[in-house]
């Protein structure tokens, strides 16, 4: 078994949005929609401002409320790596999963189904990195298998300080931010 995760080094991310553009191109995400996005936090008073920039997307939660609430089984956990996916032709577009996601990671594709980050499973299954990871000019994103203790993601989490976003929502998120 594998448990896919992303580790993002906020020390290196410059918020350039290449990951967002790459995702849009790779996955033909329609104009006006995003599967990933950049969040910038600036704390403090000029000139002592603390900044953090990070890239966000679906957390491919270990305990995914979007899957639990789905009435049709359209939202499901993929056999490989715990990736959360949507079968387009099972989805009725009830939007329960949108409302259930604490990260607002989902949206309704103009064709009617719920859509979101797929961890680029079509690439990963071919042994490639997700599009966003492969394009990042600062090399600040890492994708890999947490079950494998030798993987880059496991090593980074063992060596560096990190956090996940809103773990108190109880979803067991699988995106980790290095600080």
């Amino acid at each position: 078994m594998a448990r896919f995760a992303m580790v993002i080094d906020t020390k290196k991310c410059v918020g350039c949005m290449d990951c967002v553009v790459a995702c849009k191109a790779e996955n033909k995400v329609p104009e006006g929609f995003n599967r990933d996005w950049i969040t910038t936090e600036a704390r403090g008073k000029f000139p002592t401002v603390q900044m953090e920039i990070r890239t966000e997307r679906c957390n491919h939660c270990g305990n995914p409320p979007c899957v639990h609430c789905c009435p049709t089984g359209a939202s499901h956990v993929h056999d490989l790596g715990g990736v959360v996916l949507v079968y387009h032709d099972l989805c009725i577009g009830c939007k329960a999963c949108l409302a259930s996601c604490p990260y607002d990671a989902r949206f309704i594709h103009p064709e009617g189904y719920a859509d979101k980050c797929t961890f680029c499973i079509h690439r990963v299954e071919k042994g490639q990195d997700p599009a966003c990871v492969s394009v990042c000019p600062t090399h600040c994103m890492y994708f890999g298998d947490l079950e494998d203790v030798h993987s880059m993601v496991s090593r980074l989490l063992a060596e560096r300080k990190w956090y996940a976003i809103a773990p108190e929502a109880g979803t067991d998120p699988q995106l980790f931010y290095l600080v």
């Binding site: 949005m17 910038t40 704390r43 939007k95 409302a99 607002d104």
Partner: peptide
Amino acid sequence: MNELTTTRHNELIDPIVHV
């Protein structure tokens, strides 16, 4: 002061969920 900005603008989701 905490400025939080996001680049996302998904319909029904941003700035707040109104699905």
